[in-house]
Design a protein around this nucleic acid. Structure first.
Length: 233
RNA sequence: AUACGAGGAAC
């Protein structure tokens, strides 16, 4: 029971999803954790359809939706851009009363945003109490992906005023946003921020900076950063 | 910490 759970996790993290599956279906009594682990395993391997199938299966068997299975299902729905499914999952989450958990609201709003319901996503975000860095990064990313870079940047500033410090992930959305709106002043200050936060060794961050400067027409800057990159991938 | 949430360019 606890053992099979561990096995499922191990197999799926090693990419052996077939073995994981085998253990899962063979397990006699499956608790909600077991389902969650299996779904998370599918998520690691990008098997979105399978997750949604398991989600239906859980409902048929009256298995409680817990944090892990909810999150995995939400991710699957967003990857599939399946708004109906997403809403359905969101409903179940509410029924379980776990809809105010930040780590569930975050994928929920990401799902709405990816399915084109940005307003819904924004609404959810504003209702979160105790927004953490991940939630902020998610909304910023959602806005940029939906084509609202300036709004994303405004929120980003709000985040900093709230005393939260951006990390590499946050910046991976913020830097392209600066490029979109060609706001070099902000772009440069973000660059400064990157250097101060010792994040300038991150290759993807540098790549983003290079392309930002390039888009803004500052090729000399772009080339300088590029040349200083230790590993060019 | 049994399992779980946000992010790459060009083409």
């Amino acid at each position: 029971l606890v053992v099979s759970n561990g096995l499922i996790d191990m197999y799926s993290k090693c990419g052996n999803i077939n073995m994981a599956c085998h253990v899962f279906w063979r397990a006699k009594c499956k608790d909600d954790a077991c389902w969650g682990t299996m779904m998370a395993g599918y998520a690691h391997n990008g098997c979105w359809m399978q997750i949604l199938e398991l989600f239906d299966c859980m409902k048929e068997n009256d298995v409680r939706l817990n944090k892990v299975s909810a999150v995995s299902s939400l991710i699957a729905a967003s990857e599939m851009r399946d708004l109906d499914r997403g809403k359905q999952i969101h409903d179940c989450v509410r029924q379980q009363g776990i809809d105010s958990d930040v780590s569930i609201v975050t994928p929920t709003m990401a799902m709405y945003a990816k399915c084109g319901e940005v307003d819904k996503a924004k609404h959810l975000f504003h209702c979160i109490k105790g927004k953490d860095l991940v939630a902020w990064s998610a909304i910023v990313a959602a806005l940029v992906q939906s084509g609202y870079p300036e709004e994303a940047l405004t929120l980003f500033q709000g985040m900093q005023n709230g005393g939260l410090k951006a990390n590499e992930v946050t910046l991976m959305s913020v830097i392209p946003a600066c490029a979109e709106v060609s706001t070099l002043r902000l772009g440069k200050s973000v660059h400064c921020y990157v250097v101060k936060g010792n994040m300038d060794s991150d290759t993807s961050i540098k790549t983003a900076l290079v392309s930002m400067y390039a888009k803004c027409g500052l090729f000399t800057y772009a080339v300088t950063i590029f040349n200083r990159m230790p590993c060019k991938d």
